[in-house]
């Protein structure tokens, strides 16, 4: 085999790998779309899950899982977003590039690598039992916030670091303090980048199952009326539907809920992409 045909052979193999990845995505999304779309109805979005005649929770709709997921996302928004954004601002703007802040970022990166079920375990031990939150919306939301915190920090870091140092130097040269520089220059200029990161992190929070599995979800939970109630969530509902013995009724519901969950995530991602594109047009360094 000569050198040219060898090149063609290998390049085609690589092309095949890439094609395979695309096909996998199309097949997975296709299966969920085709099997889930038939179940979509007004009732699906307006009714809570209900038991069927055999007592399995496969009838009704998925209202309470949808609302529960939104509530969990709200808790993450309140806890993880401010802590993550301000923490990252401190590390980049005040910490600089020294050994301590590099080690600190290493810790953040390692936090992002902690398996989500380990967070669930810590959530059970610390929040549910030790702090006596019980199996609740609050315990699940806080656990989820732990999972999301490092993601928001890394996204914020990348957004801030994209701002050229000359902006900071100009601001400080005009007599602005560190906080004034952050408040009037760093945060506004990186706002859309940070916002993109927040949206993507929230979409991750919407799909996380393992952390909430142990800390606050319940099969027959209604829409929570307080932070101490247990909660239903879309990903947990999907998991439940694959574990139910009444498969013929449960599987269509699982696909429908999966389609809704993917819909939520795609919408959030689209929002992030639009934001990112606008940001690119607004600021060019």
């Amino acid at each position: 085999m000569n050198r040219r045909s060898k090149e063609a052979l290998f390049f085609n193999i690589f092309r095949g790998c890439a094609l395979f990845v695309v096909i996998v995505l199309v097949v997975i999304l296709g299966y969920i779309l085709i099997n889930g779309v038939g179940k979509l109805s007004i009732d699906l979005f307006t009714q809570n899950p209900a038991p069927n005649s055999h007592g399995a929770m496969v009838a009704g709709g998925i209202l309470s899982p949808i609302v529960g997921t939104l509530m969990l996302m709200a808790i993450v928004l309140i806890i993880a977003v401010p802590a993550g954004v301000f923490g990252a601002v401190f590390l980049v703007e005040y910490g600089g590039n020294n050994r301590i802040s590099r080690a600190w970022w290493m810790i953040v990166n390692n936090l992002a690598g902690v398996p989500s079920i380990v967070w669930g375990l810590v959530g059970v031990g610390l929040l549910v039992y030790y702090l006596n939150f019980g199996l609740s919306l609050l315990a699940a939301g806080v656990t989820l916030s732990f999972v999301i915190l490092p993601l928001i920090m890394v996204a914020t870091k990348e957004a801030i670091e994209a701002i050229p140092p000359s902006i900071r130097e100009a601001s400080v040269a005009l007599g602005a303090t560190k906080w004034q520089t952050v408040r009037h220059h760093i945060l506004p200029y990186s706002a859309s980048g940070i916002l993109t990161g927040i949206i993507l992190s929230l979409s991750r929070a919407a799909g996380e199952t393992a952390p909430i599995l142990l800390t606050g979800v319940a099969v027959n939970a209604a829409i929570p009326s307080s932070l101490s109630d247990s909660v239903q969530a879309l990903p947990y509902y999907i998991y439940l539907m694959t574990q139910t013995s009444d498969r013929s009724a449960a599987i269509p519901m699982a696909y429908a809920a999966a389609l809704v969950l993917i819909g939520v995530i795609v919408l959030l991602n689209l929002g992030a992409i639009i934001l990112r594109n606008r940001y690119r047009q607004k600021y060019r360094w």
Partner: peptide
């Protein structure tokens, strides 16, 4: 420009959806 979003979407799909696909299909 097509392939990068595909990879991003794959990364963004929740694990429970992958689990669903594995368990049922």
């Amino acid at each position: 420009n097509v392939l990068k979003p595909v990879i991003e979407i794959l990364a963004g799909i929740p694990s429970v959806i992958y689990g669903l696909f594995a368990a049922l299909v």
